[in-house]
């Protein structure tokens, strides 16, 4: 593997591992910091994605909208206590240019409820665009494409 690709893969893999660890450890307040200020976080289904349909399940256009979602989850929304456990595949680098890495990775997310119930909640792909322009790696765009169009009960915590 060429050095640039290897370096890009390491950067992207570490960022994604940190991202998932943050969510799984209930670090919602830190979640928006994985994005640049005008970053895009969009959760949709493979059905919508393949047909170019723009609406999905979550659409946060900018870090401010992500922070608002965290505030809403913490202070307004009512849902049973639950945690996620992300299991993420190896990262596939699609493109690595100066300060820009585009990657794809598969994920499974198990949702663990307060009752102890634990189920495969969603599976899908992360289609990510990462910038390293200001030294630290951050997401410019994180597209979460769920393989199924069905969401069980509700999707509160970001994926």
């Amino acid at each position: 593997m060429p050095d640039t690709l290897l370096a890009a893969n390491l950067t992207a893999s570490q960022l994604l591992a940190d991202y998932a660890a943050c969510i799984d450890a209930d670090g919602l307040e830190q979640w928006p910091d994985f994005f640049v200020d005008d970053g895009l976080y969009h959760v949709t289904t493979a059905f919508n994605h393949s047909r170019g349909l723009p609406a999905g399940i979550i659409h946060a256009d900018g870090k401010a909208m992500m922070q608002d979602r965290v505030t809403s989850l913490r202070r307004a929304n009512i849902y049973e206590p639950q945690r996620y456990r992300h299991v993420i595949s190896t990262v596939r680098v699609i493109q690595a240019k100066e300060n820009l890495i585009e990657t794809e990775a598969n994920f499974l997310v198990v949702r663990i409820m307060e009752s102890g119930k634990q189920d495969l909640f969603v599976c899908g792909r992360y289609l990510d665009r990462i910038t390293t322009a200001d030294g630290a790696a951050r997401y410019e765009k994180k597209l979460v494409v769920l393989d199924s169009e069905k969401v069980d009960t509700l999707l509160a915590i970001p994926l």
């Binding site: 609406a55 979550i58 659409h59 256009d61 979602r69 009512i78 849902y79 009960t153 999707l155």
Partner: peptide
């Protein structure tokens, strides 16, 4: 419309419950 789609659906601010 896309921004306000956050209000509804399984992850909707005012409909997830």
């Amino acid at each position: 419309r896309l921004k306000q789609a956050n209000l509804i659906g399984p992850a909707g601010y005012i409909s997830m419950e």
